[in-house]
């Protein structure tokens, strides 16, 4: 899932200082599950943002809480998320995709992010999410015992481990395990250590987004290929 962390409240308050009516909009998907941007967090944030101490130069805005199951789906937001006419700005607790979708739909209304979208991760233990995937667009988990060196090696090495791996720990941060040590032990348990004999060539990073934003077009559902890339028109 997409994991996010709440920004410092001072930073969010600075975005909305001087405004009158602000909608705090939670998102009911990934950021609800990682306990950072759901309805409960939206209510808590609205309460905290209402404190006058964050606004030395004037009264705090009036905050109202809103939400939708997913902020990142344009047609669903357009149909089911209604903002009052007097809204001056939106504070979104979605990931960056959700914030941009709201901004496209409600333009020119300012939409401010309340979260720092942090990583694609998994819930390893209750309350602990860890990064597992960079969305690099060319998955190599088949060859690495299903442990991703792109996301979990601090150097994203394709031929590891590096010389600094000691006792199964990473030299960049000894708190985290060396991804390549984990890969070695996983492949050993699978009796597939021969995979480590292969030298991986330099990576083509174009599928990782280095040629611009990526898109996926599902034939049979989407319209013509250009439609999904067309700039939004909030007046249509």
């Amino acid at each position: 899932m997409i994991v996010g962390n709440l920004k410092p409240v001072e930073e969010i308050a600075a975005s909305v200082a001087g405004l009158k009516n602000v909608q705090v909009v939670g998102c009911g998907s990934c950021v609800s599950v990682c306990l950072s941007g759901g309805d409960r967090e939206a209510r808590q944030l609205a309460d905290e943002l209402s404190l006058p101490l964050y606004y030395p130069d004037g009264p705090p805005p009036a905050f109202a809480v809103n939400g939708i199951v997913r902020q990142c789906e344009k047609d669903m937001v357009k149909t089911y998320l209604t903002l009052p006419a007097e809204t001056d700005a939106v504070v979104s607790l979605a990931c960056g995709a959700g914030v941009q979708t709201l901004a496209d739909l409600f333009s020119p209304l300012p939409v401010f992010p309340a979260l720092n979208t942090t990583f694609l991760g998994a819930l390893d233990e209750p309350g602990i999410w860890r990064e597992k995937c960079h969305g690099c667009g060319d998955c190599m988990l088949s060859f690495t015992g299903s442990i991703c060196p792109v996301a979990r090696c601090a150097k994203s090495l394709f031929n590891g481990p590096c010389g600094g791996s000691q006792g199964g720990r990473c030299e960049v941060n000894p708190e985290i395990p060396c991804a390549w040590a984990m890969i070695y032990y996983r492949l050993k348990s699978q009796n597939r250590l021969d995979l480590l004999q292969k030298v991986n060539p330099p990576r083509d990073w174009r599928p990782a987004g280095n040629t611009g934003p990526r898109s996926r077009i599902r034939t049979g559902i989407a319209g013509s290929p250009g439609d999904s890339l067309a700039p939004s028109n909030p007046t249509s």
Binding site: I68, V69, E73, D75, M76, T79, Y80, I221
Partner: peptide, 21 residues
């Protein structure tokens, strides 16, 4: 999953998706 595909593809606009929200 409340993904909304049923609502999107229905040719008759018969799915009242708001009830799932």
């Amino acid at each position: 999953a409340r993904c909304g595909q049923c609502w999107r593809v229905c040719p008759e606009q018969a799915v009242e998706f708001r009830h799932l929200l």
